[in-house]
Simulated assay, not measured.
Amino acid sequence: MNAAQLAFFRERLLNERKELEEHLKEVKAAISSHERDSDEADQASFEEELSLALRQADRESRLINNIDAALKRIENGEYGYCEETGDPIGIARLLFRPTAKLCIEAKERQEQKEHHYRKTRGE
């Protein structure tokens, strides 16, 4: 991967990280600003919304960690290469998922193993 491509992905990852951080701040502000309602239906509705927001925030926090790891791989010169095989991941896959650590073939193998494992556990 050339320097311009690395710069493109670095900027894209930084922008995505910034957007996620801003959204997490909004979620935290919404949670902290909520006042308890005396109406049980309103409170139940808020708690359901809160549950969804917390799951979303958890996913976004994990994505921020993945973004940080991808940025570290850019700095180390390892970005764009499969952690399993060492082969190039491919620009198309990185455009779709800039935090990708595995080439498509390795990812497919991983998913097949996970599917097989779930299947053997009876899920």
Rank of each mutant, 00 (worst) to 15 (best):
F9M: 01
F9I: 00
R10Q: 11
E11F: 03
R12C: 11
L13H: 01
L13S: 01
L14R: 09
N15S: 14
N15C: 03
N15I: 07
N15E: 14
N15L: 13
E16N: 10
E16C: 02
R17S: 10
R17E: 04
K18L: 13
K18S: 04
L20T: 04
L20S: 06
L20Q: 04
E21W: 02
E21T: 08
E21V: 10
E22W: 00
E22Q: 07
E22V: 06
H23E: 14
H23K: 12
L24G: 09
L24E: 09
L24Q: 14
K25T: 15
K25M: 10
E26T: 13
V27M: 10
V27C: 01
V27S: 07
A29K: 07
A29S: 01
I31A: 12
I31Q: 12
S33R: 13
H34G: 02
E35S: 08
R36D: 02
D37W: 08
D37A: 14
S38L: 15
D39L: 10
E40I: 14
A41S: 10
A41C: 01
D42S: 12
D42E: 14
D42Y: 04
D42P: 03
Q43Y: 08
Q43E: 15
S45A: 07
S45P: 00
S45Y: 04
S45W: 08
S45D: 07
F46L: 03
F46K: 00
E47M: 06
E47S: 04
E48R: 06
L50T: 11
L52D: 13
A53Q: 10
A53K: 05
A53I: 02
L54G: 01
L54T: 02
Q56D: 10
Q56C: 03
A57P: 06
A57H: 03
A57F: 03
D58F: 12
D58L: 11
D58H: 14
R59K: 10
R59H: 09
R59S: 11
E60L: 13
E60R: 09
E60M: 14
S61G: 13
S61E: 15
S61A: 15
S61R: 15
R62A: 14
R62S: 12
R62C: 02
R62K: 14
L63A: 01
L63N: 02
I64R: 06
N65I: 12
N65F: 09
N65Q: 15
N65D: 15
N65V: 06
N65T: 12
N66E: 14
N66F: 09
N66Y: 04
I67P: 00
I67N: 05
D68C: 08
D68M: 12
D68Y: 03
D68F: 00
A70N: 02
L71R: 07
K72Y: 07
